[in-house]
Structures are given as structure tokens and as C-alpha cells.
Amino acid sequence: MSSKTINIKLKVWRQKDATTKGKFENYELSEISTASSFLEMMDVLNEKLVGEGNEPVAFDHDCREGICGMCSLFVNGHAHGPDTLVTTCQLHMRKFKDDETITIEPWRAGGFPVIKDLMVDRNAFEKIMQAGGFVSVSTGGVPDANAIPIPKKDSDEAMDAASCIGCGACVATCKNSSAMLFVSAKVSQLALLPQGKLEASRRAKNMVAVMDELGFGNCSNTGACEMECPKGISLAHIARLNREFLVATIKE
């Protein structure tokens, strides 16, 4: 774990609350260990700000191991920063050079309004999930887990889709702020499994309807979402969503 220290310049979006206009503030930090995670660097910045009597930068974070999906920074033009298959909390300072200027912005999308500084409101994802991101089964009275065999291939592909952490990097990075990758991950996971198959069309239709209402743009298949997705969710799931949606329409 060879580590050295670097000095960095930060350009950070500051915004008091949802209704106040925001702007970029410049900060400088010295002797940041390259073994630190990006958010630990932000902790150092905040300790410094508090020490100076200023308000720390608000940003979402929780598990700091890349699974809760809470962290959400747009760093130097990339959702979750310039590394692949990581969330911001897994991004490390060794990815940056000495004296580098790092621009940190919140997710920008109509569907994700800023709450404060770098923190955004992702409630739109909740509403989409509530519209159909489930199998309509209640607790109890279900068959034995081995009653329905599921081909390993389907189960594995469902798992690929299910690894979505709902962070919103797909929306943040999409030039159209489209939420298709997020929606497709859930639709695809459940459409692949016999338990979810029964209501697959209905689910696709209901989730897309809510997605369309909430200010997300249209998918134009650029594939940037897949590349920035910390879990590498494939565009193939979007194709499956499209298929389910068309089937839903035909069935009507």
C-alpha cells in the first residue's frame, strides 16, 4: 500500500437549499494521502471548514463500501469520478495528480433536484419502485423455495440486473437524464424469474408510466450509463424492458 501525499484544488458546488441559487467555491487542500478515499478527502475538507467556522459541504454517503448507493458525486465530468466500476466512496485519491483541480458537482437532472450543496433528492426512484418494482406477494403462504427450478443462466442474469444499487449514476451521466437503466434493471430482474414473470408486462408499463411523469428524458442508447454504472448493469436489460413494454401494449 504505497502512499504519498498530494496537494489539490477543489471546485465545489455550494447551494444553501433547494430554492437558493448555488455557485462554485474554490478550496485548496494539502498533503492528502493518495491512500485516502475520495470521501475521506471530503471529510478532511469539512473538518477544515468547521474549524474555520464555516458550514461543511453537504453530500450523501453512508456505507462507504460501494453497496448502499447513497453517495452521488459528479467528479471531473464523471458520475462517481474517473474510475470504472466504483462508487464515489470507493474512488481513491491515487486516481488524481498532484496540483490537480477537481470539479465536484451534484447529480444534475430534472428528476433529481438539489437539496443542498452536493445532495440531491432521488425520491423519483422511490415512486418508480412503488409503481411496480416488486412481485405482488405478501408474507407467508408461498411455495417451497425449490418448488420452481430456475435455469442457472436466467438466475445469474437476474442477479446481474439485481445488483443495481439505485444510486442514479445512470441518470446523472445520461445526456438525456434518462432513468431507463435503473428501471430496466428491476423490470429485467423480475421478468427473468418465474416468480416475477406473471406480472412482467404490467410492471413494465406501470414503472415506465411513472418514470415518464417525473422529468427524466428519453433513452437514446448512447451507452454512457452502462459505462459509468458502478455495478456494470448492461444495456441488454433496457432491450428487455423495451420488449416487455411492447408486449404489454400488444396484449392490451
Binding site: K11, G77, E105, V114, N176, S177, S178, N221, T222, M227
Partner: peptide, 28 residues
């Protein structure tokens, strides 16, 4: 119709965006 909705769906733009490696120029 689609493009106008897409433009509208990001009311505040990023200051810095780098998609040079994540999508093709043509697709954007």
C-alpha cells in the same frame, strides 16, 4: 419531440462533462 424533452430534462447543466470514453461521438 424526443430531443426537446431530452434537453429539458436537465435544466441545470454540468460545468464539466467528459463522455469521451463512455459513449461514441455519433451517439451523442
Amino acid at each position: 419531440i424526443i430531443q426537446i424533452k431530452n434537453w429539458k430534462s436537465r435544466p441545470v447543466k454540468y460545468k464539466k462533462v467528459d463522455q469521451s470514453e463512455t459513449s461514441t461521438w455519433a451517439s451523442r
